Amino acid sequence: MNFNSALLCLSCIAPLQAFAEQSSAIRFAIKPITCMVKQAGQACEMTAKITWQSEQKQDLCLYQQQLQLACWQQTQKVNTNKAIKLEKTMRFTLKNSQQQVVAEQMIEVHSSANQKYRRKLKSDWSVF
């Protein structure tokens, strides 16, 4: 094996490693991604559809901020519903057994009546 063939062989390994890392990527989704409340500060309770899929079986846990919601051992595909409660926009993560975040998604909380910018409809005083 000469120097040129060794370089050619090394140049093939890097793309294969990148492909292997991409193929183990996890597809993760939580729906809906927004939750509506009447007024800011109210708690939002909803049933979220949680799905994730991986190329290989893995041990993964779902977290809402730091709170562990569910775990799956040696699982490749999940499609489940989970009741969740939010008071503000929160980050949901999937973590592996080494506590590394492998996927994440935000769920936003929006209020239908924003008190800060609401216009007053009548004056404080009246002649009649």
Rank of each mutant, 00 (worst) to 15 (best):
95 K>M: 13
1 M>G: 04
11 S>A: 13
107 I>H: 06
95 K>L: 14
75 T>K: 01
127 V>H: 01
27 R>G: 10
105 Q>W: 11
119 R>D: 00
25 A>K: 11
118 R>Q: 03
69 L>F: 01
94 L>V: 08
122 K>A: 12
62 L>V: 02
47 T>N: 13
83 A>R: 05
71 C>P: 06
81 N>G: 08
117 Y>P: 00
103 A>I: 07
128 F>A: 08
19 F>K: 11
86 L>P: 00
125 W>V: 10
51 T>A: 03
64 Q>G: 11
79 N>C: 05
128 F>E: 07
99 Q>I: 02
6 A>W: 06
68 Q>F: 10
85 K>H: 00
62 L>C: 15
34 T>A: 07
69 L>P: 04
109 V>N: 03
4 N>S: 01
76 Q>T: 00
48 A>Y: 12
59 D>M: 08
80 T>K: 02
113 A>T: 06
117 Y>T: 14
77 K>P: 05
43 A>T: 14
64 Q>S: 14
23 S>A: 12
25 A>H: 04
108 E>Q: 01
9 C>K: 11
13 I>L: 13
89 T>R: 10
117 Y>K: 08
10 L>V: 05
73 Q>C: 03
50 I>S: 13
48 A>T: 11
116 K>F: 10
104 E>Q: 12
123 S>M: 04
95 K>E: 09
23 S>P: 00
33 I>R: 09
49 K>C: 03
94 L>I: 02
124 D>P: 05
81 N>L: 12
48 A>V: 10
66 Q>F: 09
120 K>T: 06
69 L>Q: 11
71 C>M: 04
124 D>S: 05
44 C>A: 15
68 Q>G: 13
47 T>P: 00
12 C>E: 06
110 H>A: 07
114 N>A: 08
56 Q>D: 09
26 I>C: 02
49 K>S: 15
98 Q>H: 10
25 A>F: 08
93 T>R: 05
102 V>R: 08
92 F>M: 12
86 L>Q: 07
116 K>V: 13
20 A>I: 02
59 D>A: 06
110 H>I: 07
74 Q>W: 03
44 C>N: 13
14 A>T: 06
18 A>H: 09
31 K>W: 06
93 T>K: 02
28 F>L: 08
76 Q>R: 01
123 S>G: 14
28 F>N: 05
89 T>W: 08
5 S>N: 05
94 L>M: 15
57 K>I: 02
18 A>G: 09
15 P>A: 04
68 Q>A: 14
105 Q>N: 07
100 Q>C: 04
39 Q>N: 13
22 Q>C: 08
63 Y>R: 01
12 C>A: 12
108 E>M: 02
45 E>M: 08
102 V>H: 10
73 Q>H: 10
125 W>I: 09
94 L>R: 08
3 F>L: 10
57 K>H: 07
48 A>K: 12
59 D>V: 02
24 S>E: 15
20 A>Q: 05
104 E>W: 10
39 Q>T: 13
128 F>S: 00
17 Q>G: 01
73 Q>W: 07
6 A>R: 01
53 Q>K: 09
112 S>A: 06
121 L>D: 01
30 I>D: 09
94 L>T: 15
70 A>Q: 13
40 A>R: 14
48 A>G: 06
80 T>A: 04
76 Q>L: 03
74 Q>T: 11
57 K>L: 11
13 I>M: 06
59 D>K: 13
120 K>A: 02
42 Q>E: 15
31 K>S: 12
83 A>K: 11
125 W>S: 01
97 S>W: 06
10 L>D: 01
47 T>D: 15
45 E>H: 10
104 E>N: 10
